[in-house]
Design a protein around this nucleic acid. Structure first.
Lengths: 228, 228
DNA sequence: CAGCGTAATTTTGAATTCATAATTAAGTCA
DNA sequence: TGACTTAATTATGAATTCAAAATTACGCTG
Protein backbone atom coordinates (compact mmCIF):
# COMPACT_ATOMS: atom_id res chain seq x y z
CA UNK A 1 0.00 0.00 0.00
CA UNK A 2 0.87 3.68 0.46
CA UNK A 3 1.59 4.33 -3.18
CA UNK A 4 2.58 7.94 -3.44
CA UNK A 5 2.82 7.83 -7.16
CA UNK A 6 1.08 9.81 -9.88
CA UNK A 7 -2.64 10.11 -9.23
CA UNK A 8 -2.48 9.68 -5.48
CA UNK A 9 -3.68 12.76 -3.67
CA UNK A 10 -1.94 14.29 -0.72
CA UNK A 11 -2.88 17.99 -0.39
CA UNK A 12 -4.29 19.53 2.83
CA UNK A 13 -6.49 16.99 4.57
CA UNK A 14 -7.44 13.87 2.79
CA UNK A 15 -11.07 13.90 3.84
CA UNK A 16 -11.54 17.43 2.55
CA UNK A 17 -9.94 16.57 -0.73
CA UNK A 18 -12.16 13.52 -0.98
CA UNK A 19 -15.29 15.58 -0.39
CA UNK A 20 -14.26 17.79 -3.29
CA UNK A 21 -13.57 14.77 -5.47
CA UNK A 22 -16.70 12.84 -4.63
CA UNK A 23 -19.11 15.72 -5.16
CA UNK A 24 -18.54 15.89 -8.93
CA UNK A 25 -18.85 12.12 -9.18
CA UNK A 26 -22.27 12.34 -7.60
CA UNK A 27 -23.37 15.41 -9.52
CA UNK A 28 -22.50 14.10 -12.95
CA UNK A 29 -24.03 10.77 -11.97
CA UNK A 30 -20.88 8.76 -12.29
CA UNK A 31 -22.08 7.53 -8.94
CA UNK A 32 -25.68 6.87 -9.81
CA UNK A 33 -28.54 8.03 -7.58
CA UNK A 34 -29.99 5.25 -5.50
CA UNK A 35 -26.94 3.05 -5.86
CA UNK A 36 -24.61 1.87 -3.15
CA UNK A 37 -21.32 3.67 -2.79
CA UNK A 38 -18.50 1.24 -3.53
CA UNK A 39 -16.29 2.10 -0.59
CA UNK A 40 -13.52 -0.33 -1.35
CA UNK A 41 -13.46 0.57 -5.01
CA UNK A 42 -13.22 4.30 -4.29
CA UNK A 43 -10.43 3.70 -1.80
CA UNK A 44 -8.45 1.94 -4.48
CA UNK A 45 -9.29 4.58 -7.06
CA UNK A 46 -8.04 7.40 -4.87
CA UNK A 47 -5.28 5.43 -3.24
CA UNK A 48 -6.48 6.12 0.29
CA UNK A 49 -7.59 4.00 3.19
CA UNK A 50 -11.15 3.71 4.37
CA UNK A 51 -10.75 6.11 7.27
CA UNK A 52 -10.60 9.41 5.36
CA UNK A 53 -13.08 8.18 2.78
CA UNK A 54 -15.58 7.39 5.46
CA UNK A 55 -15.03 10.80 7.02
CA UNK A 56 -15.83 12.36 3.67
CA UNK A 57 -18.99 10.28 3.37
CA UNK A 58 -20.19 11.55 6.74
CA UNK A 59 -19.80 15.12 5.53
CA UNK A 60 -21.53 14.41 2.23
CA UNK A 61 -24.34 12.79 4.17
CA UNK A 62 -24.82 15.91 6.25
CA UNK A 63 -25.05 17.82 2.97
CA UNK A 64 -27.74 15.45 1.72
CA UNK A 65 -25.81 13.99 -1.21
CA UNK A 66 -25.37 10.66 0.50
CA UNK A 67 -27.54 8.62 2.80
CA UNK A 68 -25.97 6.47 5.48
CA UNK A 69 -27.71 3.29 6.46
CA UNK A 70 -26.36 1.95 9.74
CA UNK A 71 -24.45 -1.26 9.16
CA UNK A 72 -25.42 -1.26 5.51
CA UNK A 73 -23.19 1.43 4.09
CA UNK A 74 -23.59 4.63 2.13
CA UNK A 75 -25.99 5.25 -0.76
CA UNK A 76 -26.21 8.03 -3.29
CA UNK A 77 -29.42 9.91 -2.57
CA UNK A 78 -32.13 10.05 -5.17
CA UNK A 79 -33.66 13.27 -6.37
CA UNK A 80 -37.32 12.82 -5.68
CA UNK A 81 -40.18 15.13 -6.49
CA UNK A 82 -40.78 15.70 -2.80
CA UNK A 83 -37.20 16.86 -2.42
CA UNK A 84 -37.38 19.13 -5.44
CA UNK A 85 -40.58 20.68 -4.11
CA UNK A 86 -38.81 21.26 -0.82
CA UNK A 87 -35.42 22.48 -1.92
CA UNK A 88 -36.34 24.91 -4.67
CA UNK A 89 -38.46 27.18 -2.46
CA UNK A 90 -35.60 27.38 0.03
CA UNK A 91 -33.17 28.05 -2.76
CA UNK A 92 -35.58 30.66 -4.06
CA UNK A 93 -35.62 32.51 -0.76
CA UNK A 94 -31.84 32.44 -0.58
CA UNK A 95 -31.32 33.55 -4.16
CA UNK A 96 -33.85 36.32 -3.64
CA UNK A 97 -31.82 37.51 -0.70
CA UNK A 98 -28.65 37.26 -2.72
CA UNK A 99 -30.22 39.45 -5.41
CA UNK A 100 -31.29 41.98 -2.83
CA UNK A 101 -27.83 42.15 -1.29
CA UNK A 102 -26.02 42.02 -4.62
CA UNK A 103 -27.79 45.18 -5.74
CA UNK A 104 -26.44 46.91 -2.68
CA UNK A 105 -22.85 45.83 -3.07
CA UNK A 106 -22.10 44.98 -6.68
CA UNK A 107 -19.48 47.06 -8.45
CA UNK A 108 -19.74 48.34 -12.01
CA UNK A 109 -16.95 45.99 -13.01
CA UNK A 110 -18.84 43.04 -11.62
CA UNK A 111 -21.96 44.04 -13.49
CA UNK A 112 -19.92 44.06 -16.66
CA UNK A 113 -18.73 40.56 -15.84
CA UNK A 114 -22.29 39.38 -15.48
CA UNK A 115 -23.21 41.13 -18.70
CA UNK A 116 -20.42 39.26 -20.49
CA UNK A 117 -21.52 35.95 -18.99
CA UNK A 118 -25.07 36.69 -20.00
CA UNK A 119 -24.03 37.35 -23.59
CA UNK A 120 -22.11 34.08 -23.59
CA UNK A 121 -25.15 32.29 -22.25
CA UNK A 122 -27.29 33.71 -25.02
CA UNK A 123 -24.84 32.38 -27.57
CA UNK A 124 -25.00 28.95 -25.95
CA UNK A 125 -28.77 29.14 -26.12
CA UNK A 126 -28.75 30.10 -29.76
CA UNK A 127 -26.45 27.23 -30.65
CA UNK A 128 -28.54 24.94 -28.42
CA UNK A 129 -25.48 23.88 -26.45
CA UNK A 130 -27.12 22.72 -23.23
CA UNK A 131 -23.87 21.83 -21.48
CA UNK A 132 -22.36 25.25 -22.10
CA UNK A 133 -25.66 26.91 -21.22
CA UNK A 134 -25.84 25.20 -17.84
CA UNK A 135 -22.24 25.97 -17.09
CA UNK A 136 -22.53 29.70 -17.84
CA UNK A 137 -25.89 29.85 -16.10
CA UNK A 138 -24.23 28.55 -12.95
CA UNK A 139 -21.54 31.16 -13.25
CA UNK A 140 -24.09 33.95 -13.45
CA UNK A 141 -25.90 32.80 -10.35
CA UNK A 142 -22.58 32.44 -8.60
CA UNK A 143 -21.46 35.90 -9.64
CA UNK A 144 -24.61 37.40 -8.14
CA UNK A 145 -24.10 35.33 -5.02
CA UNK A 146 -20.54 36.56 -4.64
CA UNK A 147 -21.64 40.15 -5.16
CA UNK A 148 -23.92 39.74 -2.16
CA UNK A 149 -20.80 39.65 0.04
CA UNK A 150 -22.16 37.07 2.40
CA UNK A 151 -20.11 33.92 2.78
CA UNK A 152 -22.77 32.13 4.79
CA UNK A 153 -25.33 32.80 2.11
CA UNK A 154 -22.91 31.55 -0.52
CA UNK A 155 -22.27 28.33 1.37
CA UNK A 156 -25.92 27.64 2.09
CA UNK A 157 -26.97 28.36 -1.47
CA UNK A 158 -24.29 26.23 -3.00
CA UNK A 159 -25.00 23.28 -0.76
CA UNK A 160 -28.64 23.23 -1.83
CA UNK A 161 -27.77 24.06 -5.40
CA UNK A 162 -25.50 21.04 -5.54
CA UNK A 163 -28.31 18.77 -4.49
CA UNK A 164 -30.48 20.06 -7.31
CA UNK A 165 -27.75 20.33 -9.85
CA UNK A 166 -27.76 16.79 -11.08
CA UNK A 167 -31.52 16.91 -11.45
CA UNK A 168 -31.25 20.18 -13.31
CA UNK A 169 -28.51 18.79 -15.43
CA UNK A 170 -30.33 15.62 -16.27
CA UNK A 171 -33.58 17.45 -16.87
CA UNK A 172 -33.63 18.42 -20.49
CA UNK A 173 -35.62 21.60 -20.64
CA UNK A 174 -38.42 21.88 -23.12
CA UNK A 175 -37.88 24.34 -25.92
CA UNK A 176 -40.54 26.60 -24.42
CA UNK A 177 -39.10 26.49 -20.94
CA UNK A 178 -35.65 27.22 -22.27
CA UNK A 179 -36.93 30.30 -24.06
CA UNK A 180 -38.69 31.49 -20.91
CA UNK A 181 -35.59 30.92 -18.82
CA UNK A 182 -33.58 33.09 -21.14
CA UNK A 183 -36.21 35.84 -20.91
CA UNK A 184 -36.06 35.63 -17.14
CA UNK A 185 -32.32 36.02 -17.32
CA UNK A 186 -32.74 39.13 -19.46
CA UNK A 187 -34.80 40.61 -16.68
CA UNK A 188 -32.30 39.50 -14.05
CA UNK A 189 -29.58 41.37 -15.88
CA UNK A 190 -31.74 44.46 -16.25
CA UNK A 191 -32.58 44.52 -12.55
CA UNK A 192 -28.94 44.13 -11.67
CA UNK A 193 -27.90 46.97 -13.96
CA UNK A 194 -30.62 49.15 -12.45
CA UNK A 195 -29.59 47.89 -9.02
CA UNK A 196 -33.26 47.26 -8.32
CA UNK A 197 -33.01 44.87 -5.37
CA UNK A 198 -36.67 44.09 -4.70
CA UNK A 199 -37.35 43.55 -8.37
CA UNK A 200 -34.33 41.30 -8.75
CA UNK A 201 -35.39 39.33 -5.69
CA UNK A 202 -38.86 38.81 -7.10
CA UNK A 203 -37.46 37.83 -10.49
CA UNK A 204 -35.07 35.30 -9.01
CA UNK A 205 -37.86 33.88 -6.89
CA UNK A 206 -40.01 33.39 -9.95
CA UNK A 207 -37.06 32.01 -11.87
CA UNK A 208 -36.49 29.38 -9.20
CA UNK A 209 -40.12 28.38 -9.07
CA UNK A 210 -40.20 28.00 -12.83
CA UNK A 211 -37.11 25.84 -12.65
CA UNK A 212 -38.75 23.77 -9.97
CA UNK A 213 -41.83 23.24 -12.10
CA UNK A 214 -39.68 22.31 -15.06
CA UNK A 215 -37.67 19.79 -13.09
CA UNK A 216 -40.79 18.29 -11.54
CA UNK A 217 -42.37 17.94 -14.94
CA UNK A 218 -39.33 16.12 -16.19
CA UNK A 219 -39.21 13.90 -13.13
CA UNK A 220 -42.82 12.93 -13.66
CA UNK A 221 -42.18 12.11 -17.27
CA UNK A 222 -39.35 9.86 -16.09
CA UNK A 223 -41.46 8.25 -13.42
CA UNK A 224 -43.05 5.94 -15.94
CA UNK A 225 -39.63 5.00 -17.28
CA UNK A 226 -37.15 4.80 -14.43
CA UNK A 227 -36.20 6.67 -11.27
CA UNK A 228 -33.11 8.82 -11.68
CA UNK B 1 -10.69 -0.32 26.85
CA UNK B 2 -14.08 -1.14 25.35
CA UNK B 3 -16.00 -0.46 28.52
CA UNK B 4 -19.63 -1.01 27.73
CA UNK B 5 -20.78 0.01 31.15
CA UNK B 6 -23.13 2.71 32.34
CA UNK B 7 -22.55 6.00 30.53
CA UNK B 8 -21.05 4.53 27.40
CA UNK B 9 -23.16 5.19 24.34
CA UNK B 10 -24.00 2.61 21.74
CA UNK B 11 -27.13 3.61 19.79
CA UNK B 12 -27.26 3.91 15.98
CA UNK B 13 -23.93 5.16 14.67
CA UNK B 14 -21.40 6.49 17.08
CA UNK B 15 -20.43 9.46 14.99
CA UNK B 16 -24.04 10.59 14.70
CA UNK B 17 -24.56 10.22 18.41
CA UNK B 18 -21.39 12.19 19.02
CA UNK B 19 -22.56 15.02 16.78
CA UNK B 20 -25.71 15.20 18.88
CA UNK B 21 -23.71 15.16 22.08
CA UNK B 22 -21.07 17.66 21.05
CA UNK B 23 -23.50 20.27 19.74
CA UNK B 24 -24.94 21.08 23.17
CA UNK B 25 -21.44 21.23 24.65
CA UNK B 26 -20.54 23.88 22.10
CA UNK B 27 -23.81 25.76 22.35
CA UNK B 28 -23.82 26.09 26.09
CA UNK B 29 -20.14 26.96 25.94
CA UNK B 30 -18.95 24.03 27.95
CA UNK B 31 -16.51 23.89 25.06
CA UNK B 32 -15.52 27.52 24.91
CA UNK B 33 -15.37 29.44 21.65
CA UNK B 34 -11.86 29.88 20.36
CA UNK B 35 -10.48 27.04 22.42
CA UNK B 36 -8.95 23.83 21.21
CA UNK B 37 -11.11 20.77 21.27
CA UNK B 38 -9.61 18.25 23.67
CA UNK B 39 -9.89 15.19 21.47
CA UNK B 40 -8.38 12.73 23.88
CA UNK B 41 -10.36 14.04 26.81
CA UNK B 42 -13.65 13.80 24.91
CA UNK B 43 -12.83 10.28 23.82
CA UNK B 44 -12.41 9.28 27.43
CA UNK B 45 -15.51 11.16 28.48
CA UNK B 46 -17.69 9.39 25.94
CA UNK B 47 -15.85 6.11 26.09
CA UNK B 48 -15.16 6.00 22.36
CA UNK B 49 -12.07 5.85 20.22
CA UNK B 50 -10.77 8.73 18.17
CA UNK B 51 -12.17 7.46 14.87
CA UNK B 52 -15.87 8.21 15.42
CA UNK B 53 -15.08 11.38 17.35
CA UNK B 54 -13.03 12.69 14.48
CA UNK B 55 -15.82 11.82 12.06
CA UNK B 56 -18.17 13.87 14.20
CA UNK B 57 -15.75 16.79 14.22
CA UNK B 58 -15.66 16.79 10.43
CA UNK B 59 -19.43 17.06 10.33
CA UNK B 60 -19.49 19.81 12.94
CA UNK B 61 -16.86 21.64 10.93
CA UNK B 62 -19.02 21.54 7.83
CA UNK B 63 -21.80 23.02 9.96
CA UNK B 64 -19.50 25.82 11.07
CA UNK B 65 -19.41 24.99 14.76
CA UNK B 66 -15.85 23.78 14.60
CA UNK B 67 -12.82 24.85 12.62
CA UNK B 68 -10.26 22.29 11.53
CA UNK B 69 -6.66 23.36 11.31
CA UNK B 70 -4.59 20.85 9.34
CA UNK B 71 -2.15 19.08 11.61
CA UNK B 72 -3.16 21.28 14.50
CA UNK B 73 -6.52 19.88 15.45
CA UNK B 74 -10.05 21.19 15.89
CA UNK B 75 -11.10 24.47 17.47
CA UNK B 76 -14.45 25.75 18.62
CA UNK B 77 -15.38 28.61 16.29
CA UNK B 78 -15.87 32.07 17.68
CA UNK B 79 -18.98 34.08 17.11
CA UNK B 80 -17.74 37.25 15.48
CA UNK B 81 -19.69 40.31 14.52
CA UNK B 82 -18.99 39.62 10.85
CA UNK B 83 -20.53 36.20 11.24
CA UNK B 84 -23.57 37.54 13.06
CA UNK B 85 -24.09 40.15 10.36
CA UNK B 86 -23.90 37.38 7.80
CA UNK B 87 -25.94 34.66 9.39
CA UNK B 88 -28.93 36.59 10.69
CA UNK B 89 -30.01 37.93 7.30
CA UNK B 90 -29.90 34.39 5.91
CA UNK B 91 -31.81 33.12 8.90
CA UNK B 92 -34.26 35.95 8.40
CA UNK B 93 -34.95 34.96 4.82
CA UNK B 94 -35.46 31.35 5.86
CA UNK B 95 -37.70 32.16 8.81
CA UNK B 96 -39.71 34.49 6.61
CA UNK B 97 -40.26 31.61 4.21
CA UNK B 98 -41.17 29.34 7.08
CA UNK B 99 -43.81 31.86 8.19
CA UNK B 100 -45.19 32.10 4.71
CA UNK B 101 -45.44 28.33 4.36
CA UNK B 102 -46.66 27.79 7.90
CA UNK B 103 -49.68 29.99 7.28
CA UNK B 104 -50.58 27.75 4.37
CA UNK B 105 -50.28 24.47 6.21
CA UNK B 106 -50.72 24.97 9.93
CA UNK B 107 -53.67 23.25 11.58
CA UNK B 108 -55.93 24.78 14.20
CA UNK B 109 -54.49 22.41 16.77
CA UNK B 110 -50.97 23.53 15.98
CA UNK B 111 -51.98 27.16 16.33
CA UNK B 112 -53.30 26.34 19.76
CA UNK B 113 -49.99 24.76 20.63
CA UNK B 114 -48.16 27.91 19.61
CA UNK B 115 -50.65 29.97 21.57
CA UNK B 116 -49.92 27.90 24.67
CA UNK B 117 -46.17 28.22 24.15
CA UNK B 118 -46.60 31.94 23.69
CA UNK B 119 -48.48 32.25 26.98
CA UNK B 120 -45.75 30.27 28.67
CA UNK B 121 -43.13 32.56 27.18
CA UNK B 122 -44.97 35.61 28.49
CA UNK B 123 -44.93 34.12 31.96
CA UNK B 124 -41.17 33.52 31.66
CA UNK B 125 -40.77 37.11 30.58
CA UNK B 126 -42.81 38.41 33.48
CA UNK B 127 -40.78 36.43 35.97
CA UNK B 128 -37.59 37.48 34.15
CA UNK B 129 -36.52 33.88 33.72
CA UNK B 130 -34.16 34.23 30.76
CA UNK B 131 -33.33 30.54 30.52
CA UNK B 132 -36.98 29.54 30.36
CA UNK B 133 -37.71 32.39 27.97
CA UNK B 134 -35.02 31.30 25.52
CA UNK B 135 -36.13 27.71 25.72
CA UNK B 136 -39.79 28.45 24.97
CA UNK B 137 -38.83 31.01 22.36
CA UNK B 138 -36.92 28.30 20.52
CA UNK B 139 -39.90 26.01 20.71
CA UNK B 140 -42.16 28.60 19.13
CA UNK B 141 -39.82 29.17 16.22
CA UNK B 142 -39.49 25.44 15.83
CA UNK B 143 -43.25 24.93 15.89
CA UNK B 144 -43.67 27.43 13.07
CA UNK B 145 -40.85 25.77 11.19
CA UNK B 146 -42.47 22.37 11.51
CA UNK B 147 -45.80 23.77 10.39
CA UNK B 148 -44.11 24.86 7.17
CA UNK B 149 -43.88 21.15 6.22
CA UNK B 150 -40.51 21.49 4.60
CA UNK B 151 -37.78 19.27 6.00
CA UNK B 152 -35.03 20.97 4.02
CA UNK B 153 -36.06 24.34 5.38
CA UNK B 154 -36.11 22.92 8.87
CA UNK B 155 -32.62 21.50 8.53
CA UNK B 156 -31.14 24.64 7.00
CA UNK B 157 -32.75 26.89 9.57
CA UNK B 158 -31.68 24.81 12.50
CA UNK B 159 -28.10 24.56 11.32
CA UNK B 160 -27.77 28.33 11.16
CA UNK B 161 -29.81 28.80 14.28
CA UNK B 162 -27.40 26.58 16.18
CA UNK B 163 -24.48 28.72 15.18
CA UNK B 164 -26.20 31.80 16.54
CA UNK B 165 -27.72 30.14 19.54
CA UNK B 166 -24.76 30.36 21.84
CA UNK B 167 -24.36 34.03 20.96
CA UNK B 168 -28.04 34.59 21.57
CA UNK B 169 -27.85 32.67 24.78
CA UNK B 170 -24.82 34.50 26.04
CA UNK B 171 -26.18 37.84 24.94
CA UNK B 172 -28.17 39.17 27.80
CA UNK B 173 -30.88 41.24 26.22
CA UNK B 174 -31.44 44.74 27.46
CA UNK B 175 -34.70 45.31 29.27
CA UNK B 176 -35.91 47.44 26.33
CA UNK B 177 -34.97 44.87 23.72
CA UNK B 178 -36.63 42.12 25.71
CA UNK B 179 -39.86 44.10 25.84
CA UNK B 180 -39.73 44.74 22.10
CA UNK B 181 -39.04 41.08 21.39
CA UNK B 182 -42.14 40.11 23.33
CA UNK B 183 -44.21 42.64 21.37
CA UNK B 184 -42.86 41.18 18.12
CA UNK B 185 -43.91 37.75 19.31
CA UNK B 186 -47.42 39.05 19.99
CA UNK B 187 -47.61 40.10 16.39
CA UNK B 188 -46.18 36.80 15.21
CA UNK B 189 -48.95 34.98 17.02
CA UNK B 190 -51.59 37.29 15.62
CA UNK B 191 -50.36 36.80 12.06
CA UNK B 192 -50.34 33.07 12.54
CA UNK B 193 -53.88 33.03 13.91
CA UNK B 194 -54.99 35.18 10.97
CA UNK B 195 -52.93 32.95 8.68
CA UNK B 196 -51.52 36.11 7.14
CA UNK B 197 -48.40 34.72 5.43
CA UNK B 198 -46.87 37.88 3.98
CA UNK B 199 -47.37 39.77 7.21
CA UNK B 200 -45.89 36.95 9.26
CA UNK B 201 -42.93 36.80 6.91
CA UNK B 202 -42.31 40.51 7.27
CA UNK B 203 -42.65 40.31 11.04
CA UNK B 204 -40.21 37.44 11.34
CA UNK B 205 -37.76 39.25 9.08
CA UNK B 206 -37.92 42.28 11.30
CA UNK B 207 -37.69 40.11 14.40
CA UNK B 208 -34.49 38.52 13.12
CA UNK B 209 -32.92 41.82 12.23
CA UNK B 210 -33.70 43.19 15.66
CA UNK B 211 -32.13 40.11 17.20
CA UNK B 212 -29.09 40.61 15.05
CA UNK B 213 -28.75 44.20 16.16
CA UNK B 214 -29.15 43.17 19.78
CA UNK B 215 -26.51 40.48 19.53
CA UNK B 216 -24.10 42.79 17.71
CA UNK B 217 -24.57 45.42 20.35
CA UNK B 218 -23.76 42.92 23.04
CA UNK B 219 -20.75 41.63 21.12
CA UNK B 220 -19.40 45.14 20.83
CA UNK B 221 -19.86 45.72 24.52
CA UNK B 222 -17.87 42.54 25.12
CA UNK B 223 -15.17 43.52 22.66
CA UNK B 224 -13.55 45.76 25.21
CA UNK B 225 -13.68 42.99 27.79
CA UNK B 226 -13.00 39.68 26.09
CA UNK B 227 -13.86 37.83 22.92
CA UNK B 228 -16.49 35.15 23.45
C1' DC C 1 18.94 35.06 32.45
C1' DA C 2 17.23 35.68 27.65
C1' DG C 3 17.34 33.74 23.20
C1' DC C 4 18.24 29.99 20.25
C1' DG C 5 18.63 25.24 18.68
C1' DT C 6 17.92 20.48 19.46
C1' DA C 7 15.90 16.41 21.65
C1' DA C 8 11.83 14.32 23.94
C1' DT C 9 7.03 14.22 24.09
C1' DT C 10 2.59 14.74 22.57
C1' DT C 11 -0.83 15.17 19.08
C1' DT C 12 -2.51 14.50 14.68
C1' DG C 13 -3.76 12.12 10.33
C1' DA C 14 -4.35 8.09 8.19
C1' DA C 15 -3.54 2.99 7.64
C1' DT C 16 -4.42 -1.21 9.65
C1' DT C 17 -6.67 -4.53 12.45
C1' DC C 18 -10.52 -6.71 14.59
C1' DA C 19 -15.28 -7.76 16.15
C1' DT C 20 -19.77 -7.78 14.52
C1' DA C 21 -23.54 -7.28 11.36
C1' DA C 22 -25.19 -8.22 6.83
C1' DT C 23 -25.10 -10.65 2.72
C1' DT C 24 -24.35 -14.46 -0.08
C1' DA C 25 -23.71 -19.37 -0.82
C1' DA C 26 -24.48 -24.04 0.31
C1' DG C 27 -27.00 -27.66 2.04
C1' DT C 28 -31.27 -29.84 3.82
C1' DC C 29 -35.74 -31.56 3.55
C1' DA C 30 -40.49 -31.40 1.99
C1' DT D 1 -37.65 -27.75 -7.58
C1' DG D 2 -38.26 -24.44 -4.00
C1' DA D 3 -38.63 -22.69 0.62
C1' DC D 4 -35.97 -22.68 4.81
C1' DT D 5 -31.57 -23.20 7.69
C1' DT D 6 -27.23 -22.72 8.48
C1' DA D 7 -22.38 -21.97 7.21
C1' DA D 8 -18.99 -19.08 4.56
C1' DT D 9 -17.95 -14.75 2.90
C1' DT D 10 -17.92 -10.01 2.73
C1' DA D 11 -18.65 -5.32 4.34
C1' DT D 12 -19.17 -2.25 8.00
C1' DG D 13 -18.09 0.26 12.33
C1' DA D 14 -14.94 1.33 15.47
C1' DA D 15 -10.51 0.43 18.04
C1' DT D 16 -5.81 0.26 17.51
C1' DT D 17 -1.40 1.10 15.53
C1' DC D 18 2.05 3.82 13.26
C1' DA D 19 4.44 7.60 10.81
C1' DA D 20 4.77 12.39 10.55
C1' DA D 21 3.95 16.93 12.29
C1' DA D 22 3.68 20.06 15.99
C1' DT D 23 4.47 21.26 20.54
C1' DT D 24 6.94 21.31 24.64
C1' DA D 25 11.06 20.69 27.46
C1' DC D 26 15.70 20.99 27.91
C1' DG D 27 20.27 22.60 27.64
C1' DC D 28 23.58 25.42 25.57
C1' DT D 29 25.70 29.83 24.42
C1' DG D 30 26.34 34.55 24.72
Amino acid sequence: MTLHTSQTILRKSLHHELVDRLQPLIINSELKPGTKIPEKQLCERFGVSRTPLREALKVLASDGLVRLEPNRGAWVTQVTQEEVDEVFPVLGALEALSGELACKHITDAEIEEVRALHAQMIRSYESRDLDAYFSVNQKIHRAILLAARNATLTTSCQALSLRMQRARYLANMSEGRWYDAVQEHEKILQCLVARDGPNLAATLLHHMDAKRASVVKWLQSQETTDAI
